[in-house]
Amino acid sequence: MAGRLDGKVAVITGGASGIGLGTVELFVAEGACVVAADIQDEKGAMLEQRFPGRVRYAHCDVTKEAEIAAALKLAADEFGGLDILFNNAGISDGMRELASIDAETWSWIYDVLVRGPALGMKHAVPLMLARGGGSIVNTASIAGLQAGWGPIAYSSAKAAVIHMSRVAAAQLGTQRIRVNAICPGLIATSIFGASLGLPRAVADQMAARVAENAAKVQPVPKAGLPDDIAQAALYLASDASAFVTGTHLVVDGGITVGSRHSWDQSGVSPFAELFGDAFSQSQDS
Rank of each mutant, 00 (worst) to 15 (best):
Val179Ala: 11
Pro219Asn: 01
Gly224Ser: 06
Met206Ala: 02
Val167Gly: 03
Gly185Met: 03
Thr189Ala: 11
Gly185Arg: 01
Lys222Arg: 15
Gly246Asn: 04
Ala181Lys: 11
Asp252Tyr: 10
Ile229Trp: 13
Asn213Ala: 05
Thr247Gln: 10
Gly254Glu: 02
Ser262Ile: 03
Thr189His: 14
Leu186Val: 01
Gln205Asp: 10
Val202Gln: 15
Phe271Tyr: 15
Ala170Pro: 03
Ala237Met: 07
Ala188Asp: 10
Ala207Leu: 05
Phe271Pro: 08
Arg209Asp: 13
Ala272Phe: 13
Val167Glu: 04
Gly224Gln: 02
Ala215Phe: 09
Ala208Thr: 00
Ala194Trp: 01
Val268Pro: 14
Gln218Glu: 02
Val167Thr: 13
Ala223Asp: 11
Ala201His: 11
Gly254His: 10
Asp204Asn: 06
Leu198Pro: 11
Ala223Arg: 02
Tyr235Ala: 04
Met164Arg: 07
Ala181Arg: 11
Ala168Lys: 06
Gly258Ala: 09
Gly224Val: 02
Asn213Gln: 12
Asp227Ile: 14
Glu212Lys: 05
Ser259Ala: 15
Gln218Pro: 10
Ser259Cys: 07
Asp227His: 09
Val250Thr: 13
Leu186Ala: 10
Arg200Glu: 15
Ile191Tyr: 10
Ala208Phe: 09
Ala223Cys: 07
Arg200Pro: 14
Lys216Gly: 07
Ala215Gln: 13
Asp204Met: 05
Val161Cys: 08
Gly253Tyr: 06
Val244Ala: 10
Leu249Thr: 00
Val268Ser: 04
Ala169Lys: 09
Ala223Val: 04
Ala232Cys: 11
Ser266Cys: 01
Thr174Glu: 13
Ser266Val: 00
Thr245Trp: 09
Gly246Thr: 01
Ile255Gln: 12
Val251His: 09
Gln265Trp: 06
Val268Met: 12
Ala207His: 04
Ile229Arg: 05
Ser241Arg: 05
Asp227Thr: 04
Gly258Asp: 14
Leu198Cys: 03
Ile177Gln: 07
Ile229Phe: 14
Asp264Trp: 05
Trp263Asp: 08
Ala214His: 03
His163Cys: 03
Ser266Lys: 00
Gly193Ile: 01
Ala214Pro: 11
Asp252Leu: 02
Leu172Cys: 07
Ala169Asn: 12
Lys222Ala: 10
Ala215His: 14
Ala240Pro: 09
Val251Lys: 03
Thr189Trp: 14
Leu236Ser: 08
Ser165Lys: 04
Leu198Asp: 03
Gly185Glu: 05
Pro226Cys: 00
Ala168Gly: 11
Ala170Asp: 11
Val251Gln: 11
Asp239Glu: 15
Ala214Ser: 15
Thr256Glu: 09
Ala223Asn: 05
Gly258Arg: 04
Asp228Trp: 07
Ile191Trp: 12
Gln231Val: 00
Lys216Ile: 01
Ser259Asp: 15
